[in-house]
Design a protein around this nucleic acid. Structure first.
Length: 270
DNA sequence: CGTATTCCCTGCACGC
DNA sequence: TGCGTGCAGGGAATAC
């Protein structure tokens, strides 16, 4: 389930394979993923040079002269770069062939991902109302404190809201709240400024650490070169409901918040 | 506007 | 062994 670290790891793996390459062909084996794949993808990409691969939130942007292809991995998507003669398998929905003889292949069993188009100079509606990047200076405890005043929703839902800060999904929200010692169900508006400073620091540290580990391969994430990530070995709470807290030895609780599984320690998180 | 809920989709774990 | 059920979840859409 790709969150910011997994998307960033994907970007890092794609960049040396894609940057400066010319696209020779686009193969769409489905007309749609989450949304229909716009005609510009098949019409405009072949022949274009890939100028760069950027990331904004959990979106990847492949920059070409006439605009950018926008990719989201949803929760089961992955991008791999393979030799051009590797036959496609189940759920290999899109191929982008390169003049290197290799092919970037988009696999997504659950099809929550998307492939969209953004003309040069425009910002796609999906990118318009996003909060700051968590690893940027714009994101800090003051930002969280200010945005949370008057909010009744749980701090976990608040943290996972992409308008608050981007890139934090269920795994990293749970881990960040654990490291900050904050109970996930606490109303966002009731949390003090010092505690939000701790939370912002935890988010930054955990995301940066997860990127260094190559991301989290909990079920299906895979890097462009086929290797897994190793951060799941560092998880303190996510996926560990009923097991022992690694800090205090208590039993980790499991509840549902905002229709998401939420694991936390009732002793360490208050 | 804020908040909670539903829905999209497939693979897999589970219980009978 | 096979079948039904529930869950996983990003995030848009919908309802209130």
């Amino acid at each position: 389930m790709p969150e910011l670290p997994e998307v960033e790891i994907t970007r890092l793996g794609l960049t040396p394979e894609l940057e400066g390459r010319r696209i020779t062909a686009v193969t769409l084996r489905r007309p749609d993923l989450r949304w229909p794949i716009p005609g510009e993808i098949a019409a405009l990409l072949p022949g274009e040079f890939i100028l760069g691969v950027r990331r904004r939130a959990k979106y990847l942007l492949m920059d070409l002269a006439p605009g950018s292809a926008l990719l989201h991995l949803g929760m089961s998507g992955s991008l791999r770069v393979l030799a051009g003669d590797v036959p496609p398998g189940r759920h290999d929905h899109v191929d982008i062939a390169l003049d290197s003889g290799r092919v970037m292949r988009f696999n997504d069993p659950r099809r929550f991902g998307c492939l969209l188009w953004q003309p040069l100079g425009e910002t796609h509606a999906l990118l318009r109302d996003l909060g700051p990047e968590p690893l940027s200076a714009q994101f800090d405890g003051n930002h969280l404190f200010r945005l949370s005043r008057g909010r009744q929703t749980s701090v976990k839902a608040f943290l996972m809201d992409q308008g608050t800060v981007v890139g934090v999904g269920n795994i990293y929200a749970a881990e960040s709240l654990f490291q900050a010692g904050i109970a996930p169900g606490r109303p966002a508006g009731e949390i003090s400024r010092p505690r939000y400073h701790r939370l912002a620091s935890a988010v930054k540290e955990i995301l940066a650490h997860a990127i260094r580990c190559g991301g989290t391969t909990f079920r299906d994430f895979i890097r462009p070169d086929g290797r897994p990530g190793y951060f799941e070995q560092e998880l303190f709470v996510y996926g560990r409901e009923g097991e022992l807290c690694l800090t205090c030895g208590g039993i980790l609780k499991n509840s549902r918040l905002g229709n998401r599984a939420t694991v936390w320690c009732g002793h360490c998180q208050t």
